[in-house]
Nucleic acid binder design. Structure first.
Length: 119
DNA sequence: TCTGTGACCGCTG
DNA sequence: ACAGCGGCCACAG
């Protein structure tokens, strides 16, 4: 499995401890699976999915850190690269499709592809 | 310090 | 089914 420290390069902006935890958790998600902001927040012991969104929005490591594998709790596509709609979302869709995660009208087709973090 | 903002969530009517 | 609304918490300025 990938190690976060091996992804970070000197050219990257420094990240906060919270961001570190978020990105490290992302690396646990296998290809072909996705998670939600809420699940991720709960796994991190942080009550706010919105805070997780903040961290992902500022992800300096895309696409090495698979931030595209995070969708909203209602199983919709969510945002990408700071955008909630538009070309960037299409890109996110493409990435997920390439991994075998299919959407229908911007909603996850198969809920079984949701990754549950270890307790 | 303090404040506004956000790739969100879930309860309520 | 669905829109509204308060809560959440990290972070930049």
């Amino acid at each position: 499995m990938k190690i976060l420290s091996s992804i970070i390069k000197p050219t990257h902006k420094p990240i906060t401890p919270f961001q570190w935890r978020v990105y490290a958790a992302l690396l646990l998600i296998p290809r072909g699976s996705v998670t939600t902001y809420g699940l991720l927040a709960r796994y991190l012991g942080c009550g706010s999915a919105q805070a997780v969104g903040q961290a992902l929005r500022r992800n300096p490591f895309a696409p090495d850190v698979p931030c595209h594998r995070v969708i909203t709790s209602n199983l919709c596509i969510g945002g990408f690269s700071g955008q909630r709609e538009g070309e960037q979302i299409a890109k996110k869709l493409t990435l997920l499709t390439a991994e075998g995660v299919e959407f229908h009208n911007s909603a996850l087709k198969d809920p079984r592809q949701i990754f549950h973090f270890p307790t």
